[in-house]
């Protein structure tokens, strides 16, 4: 097994390949910063989705796409916290 080739070549390279990845990153941080979930809970969701990919057979799991996992974790947290189903007035109750 070889390291990803960028391991030795992308020193100082940009951290995001696409703007949507940057937005997904900012969105996940923002929802945590504003108290909609604890960062550890987002991390747990991220670890779960990455773990599922790692345990799946290589033939079934598709290419490694880190930000797909990030988006899946984000979607899960938004669903779990009901952020898109509650009325705006009830949202501040989530603040810690």
């Amino acid at each position: 097994m070889r390291l990803h080739e960028s391991c030795t070549t992308d020193h100082g390279a940009p951290r995001f390949d696409h703007e949507w990845q940057r937005r997904a990153f900012g969105l996940a941080i923002a929802l945590s910063e504003f108290g909609h979930y604890r960062w550890e809970d987002f991390q747990r969701a991220l670890i779960e989705t990455i773990g599922r990919w790692e345990r799946a057979p290589e033939s079934e799991r598709g290419d490694w796409k880190y930000y797909d996992h990030w988006v899946a974790a984000l979607q899960k947290m938004i669903d779990d916290r009901g952020l898109l189903t509650t009325t705006p007035a009830s949202v501040p109750n989530h603040h810690q």
Partner: peptide, 23 residues
């Protein structure tokens, strides 16, 4: 993935969870 992220952000703005400037 790009479409999903854009949709989530605009829905959260619509719901008033975040503002257009938050992210």
């Amino acid at each position: 993935s790009a479409a999903k992220v854009a949709a989530l952000e605009s829905l959260l703005i619509e719901k008033g969870v975040i503002t257009p400037e938050t992210v």
